[in-house]
Design a protein around this nucleic acid. Structure first.
Lengths: 185, 185
DNA sequence: CTCCAATCGCAACTTATGTCGCGTTAAGCT
DNA sequence: AGCTTAACGCGACATAAGTTGCGATTGGAG
């Protein structure tokens, strides 16, 4: 039952986006009564927060090319293409949109990205071990620097994001890391 | 009349944020009838889009310290403190939140940031003229790199943004620019 | 097998949000 | 001044969102 609602939530998000997501449509699609959804999830934001836990569990393929720059390029490529994807894109976008509005969703998304940053920081740690980067480099922060311009364009300035834009952000993060600017406090 | 509504919109945004902004409260506060607001602005997003034009007109003090790194640090400091400000913060936040939902607001915000980027790119151009950066460096892109991590934390990962985080982003952007990684296409 | 508790389905109700038709006012034109 | 047109105020209406009380179902404990 919980799963039916989560699936329905994701489907609705993909079709109508976050602003088009209503408790009632999720209830109908999942075959669960409207009142029940309200009681257990509280609101649209609750539905999102729950669906996010599902998304967090999905594993992420981490590149290991032997070069930090190429690893970062691959990561940003994945991020960009994820949002460009016609089915996954609207869902991911909806998560971000929901978190801007609701505290619950924001907390869920925070946890989601914390996990992602830790996962992705491996490529930085490996680069340090290879001697490519100075020790004391903040792995999660390098990842943030690499992906931030993508999200910035997508959700703040609402500019198009080209493959080249993403690549440039990855290269810049790599260059800054090499320069020893991104260290832990 | 248009101005009364815009002022009321900003005031409501400051007090209740974007999710607490309703057409009716703006109508009451501005002394304009509800129906009229609906007719001329259409919805909450329309109110935001209109208020954004007002924000765009406000000028922005551009630093000129003689060093790219210090200029960028000052810019990110302004951005960060703007969002931390108890009165301006909620309003700015509301703009971003609205743009994630509505196409109209997104277009307005896009124009807003285009103008900001062009304005701020001066510090990069000056750095190129000083010989601090290689010619062909993309000014707007350096600015994006410097501020993106702040917005990323604020609106995507929902992490706290320390003064040090902002500074580090500025330093990273400066380092990447010096490395010649951020050039025009 | 029976009873108890928790959860769900259901319809009615309340409240917010957005729309419509009409009368009125104000500005521009001749 | 008299006429025309566009915009506004106003209340009534329509629809969507969320809540409540109650009866029915299910699943587990004695």
């Amino acid at each position: 039952m919980r799963d039916a609602v989560r699936q329905a939530t994701l489907a609705e998000l993909g079709e109508h986006g976050y602003s088009g997501l209503t408790v009632e449509s999720v209830a109908i699609r999942s075959g669960v009564h409207k009142t029940t959804v309200y009681r257990r999830w509280g609101s649209v934001e609750g539905l999102i927060a729950d669906a996010l836990e599902l998304a967090r569990e999905e594993p992420w393929p981490m590149p290991d090319t032997g070069s930090l720059q190429d690893d970062l390029r691959e990561i940003v490529r994945l991020v960009r293409s994820g949002f460009a994807d016609p089915v996954a894109g609207p869902i991911s976008t909806a998560f971000v949109a929901a978190a801007v509005q609701s505290g619950d969703a924001a907390r869920s998304l925070h946890d989601f990205f914390t996990a992602r940053h830790e996962q992705a920081a491996v490529v930085v740690r490996r680069a340090v071990e290879r001697g490519e980067l100075p020790p004391g480099t903040d792995g999660a922060e390098v990842i943030r620097m690499a992906v931030a311009p993508i999200y910035y364009r997508l959700f703040v300035t609402h500019e198009p994001v080209t493959e080249r834009d993403a690549e440039r952000a990855a290269d810049a993060a790599a260059a800054a890391a090499r320069a020893g600017v991104i260290r832990v406090a």
